[in-house]
Write a protein that binds this DNA or RNA. Structure first.
Lengths: 204, 204
DNA sequence: GTCTATATCCAGATAGAC
DNA sequence: GTCTATCTGGATATAGAC
């Protein structure tokens, strides 16, 4: 009789998937070996292959599982949100919590980008288009300046946040003055919002 | 008799270094093999080891050569530049041409960041501090709003440009409306500048 | 400096017993 | 499903002749 709920201690297959996700995110595909995955998951190397056929397809399974697990967390299409302030806060808050809560996904996406993997991150494109649409609508309502393309406005917003996380450690080590990482995130959020509200606002 | 000038056709060692730079930038360290480097450089695998001792140290040599070659191209400390507009254009133009002209460096730096290599890109830190200093000075002169930390202002500026290049292909494929890549770069530069000039400007 | 040959190791993957 | 044993290939690196 199958138990529909997640088991308390993960099955062998689950343990492998989890260990693989960690290791791929730390070291990338080429930098990770099946033995490492076996060791960290407490399973044997042959079991890894038994469950997933090949290293390559395990990698795909990891990505698929991430997408399945987190696509629900992607910024929701909160249609009622209006106004530059609302759109900005909504988008920024969603991205911040997204990046904060999914460190392995962020890293794997970065590896995948370098490796030339341009598929599979399915939801992302929809997500972009949805926000582009929101920005366009706000422009029509006169809430966002309309001399900037909505596509590029979105990149400016998301780019700053993306880079903040991509070089998080690097920046805190090198340049930041704040005490704790959390405080640094807060400050960045605050300053970025201030710049964007004014930079994207209407009027001249 | 040594020729001080670069030979027209690169020596074996140079050819290896060049091929290695390409391949590391395309596939990362773990994803690249000595055989590939040998093949692309037209040399033998043993020669690669002969010249560079090990794959690891060849990787270091590649990074060192990149730094040596391009550190001169880093945005210069044009002290006379004043005013938000001047600083912005100066920084943005420098970064754009930098990214555009050094694609292998950009990719290798991204690999290195994921691989956890937090040294070696020596000039970068000085470079950041210099710009932070410029922004601070402009704030004291009242040319840039002073409720934003100079450090975070720099991240907002450089972040947008960095991401633009990191996902250049991705974005052009997915979202952009312009005809040519060059035109897309132009437009992005233009829009980003417009947003930042207003977003970072003084007063309210 | 350049080659051939080779050592060594370990990766990914298979076979088959249990 | 899980194990042990094993295959095969390819990786880094060395040795030594030329």
């Amino acid at each position: 009789m199958m138990d529909a709920n997640k088991p308390v201690s993960p099955s062998g297959r689950e343990a492998i998937l989890e260990a693989a996700e960690q290791l791929f995110s730390e070291q990338g595909f080429a930098g990770t070996t099946i033995s490492q995955i076996a060791e960290r998951s407490g399973q044997s190397g042959s079991l890894v292959i038994f469950h997933f056929k090949s290293k390559k397809s395990l990698y795909k399974a990891v990505k698929a599982s991430i997408v399945a697990r987190y696509s629900a967390c992607l910024p929701e299409p909160i249609e009622e949100v209006e106004g530059l302030h609302g759109i900005l806060r909504n988008l920024m808050r969603a991205m911040f919590s997204y990046y904060r809560n999914n460190p392995t996904m962020v890293r794997i996406a970065n590896w995948a980008n370098l490796e030339g993997d341009h598929e599979a991150w399915g939801g992302e494109s929809d997500w972009h288009h949805r926000y582009v649409g929101q920005i366009e609508a706000a422009q029509r309502r006169g809430e966002i300046r309309d001399d900037i393309s909505p596509f590029r406005a979105l990149i400016i917003i998301t780019g700053a946040i993306h880079v903040w996380w991509e070089f998080h450690d690097h920046m805190l080590r090198d340049l930041d003055q704040t005490d704790t990482p959390d405080a640094a995130d807060e400050c960045f959020f605050h300053d970025l919002e201030a710049v964007l509200v004014r930079g994207l606002g209407p009027g001249q």
